[in-house]
């Protein structure tokens, strides 16, 4: 399994880097905004506000799932294009293990990106205690929603990459995915929305597992 995980990391390292960089840029923007907020000097005109941090995080809630879709799509599209599974599955492994390694790597990259944001926000709270007026429960809800939205988006990317479908259909699927995500977000960052997204992710991964394990190679 370790070798399979390394194989997946080797292939999607660049996308992981992209995802982490995007997250880093967003957090840097939030940090700079927070830094310039006149916490101590009320005579300085405000450049940023705690609300901007929330806005940045809400933007990240859309950006992270989109990049997750690209990550999943690249993982399986690369596989299908280069017959990776067709070769590796003839060695001492199974397709189930290969898919598990892929999901572990994808999941870890997504979780690591979100964890990076959590760390950055925590650091900002530590540096600027006056940010605390922002309700911490809202931030937690945003992070959980971000993760809950990223997982089905990632699964959708995996499904799209493995299915031999045209670009137009991919765009339609992406649009549909966006509509679902927005609809769920409108339900609010509440457990009901998270459960809906988790069920969506599990359903797509289940379908992919069936196709991946049984499809002729």
């Amino acid at each position: 399994m370790r070798k399979l995980v390394l194989m997946e990391l080797d292939r999607v390292g660049l996308v992981a880097l992209l995802l982490l960089t995007a997250v880093g840029l967003l957090m840097a923007f939030a940090a700079v905004t927070g830094f310039y907020y006149p916490w101590h000097d009320s005579s300085r005109p405000p450049v940023g506000s705690p609300e901007e941090l929330v806005v940045v995080l809400l933007v990240a809630t859309v950006v992270v799932p989109l990049i997750s879709t690209v990550l999943g799509w690249l993982q399986t599209d690369y596989d299908r294009r280069w017959n990776l599974t067709a070769y590796v599955s003839t060695r001492a492994t199974t397709r189930g293990r290969m898919l598990a390694a892929r999901l572990i790597v994808g999941g870890l990259i997504i979780v690591a990106s979100i964890a990076l944001m959590v760390l950055a926000v925590a650091a900002m709270f530590h540096a600027f205690p006056r940010l605390l007026p922002v309700d911490a429960t809202i931030l937690v809800a945003i992070f959980v929603t971000m993760l809950a939205a990223a997982l089905p988006a990632y699964a959708a990317g995996l499904v799209m990459g493995w299915s031999q479908i045209g670009r137009l259909r991919i765009l339609v699927l992406l649009g549909l995915l966006l509509v679902i995500l927005l609809a769920v977000l409108m339900m609010g960052s509440r457990p009901r929305a998270w459960i809906t997204l988790a069920v969506l992710a599990v359903a797509m991964i289940g379908w992919l597992h069936h196709r991946y394990v049984h499809q002729p190679l």
């Binding site: 070798k3 399979l4 590796v88 060695r91 001492a92």
Partner: peptide, 11 residues
Amino acid sequence: WLVSLCRGLAP
């Protein structure tokens, strides 16, 4: 890399 993968997977 291919050899290393095959070696790593082989019992």
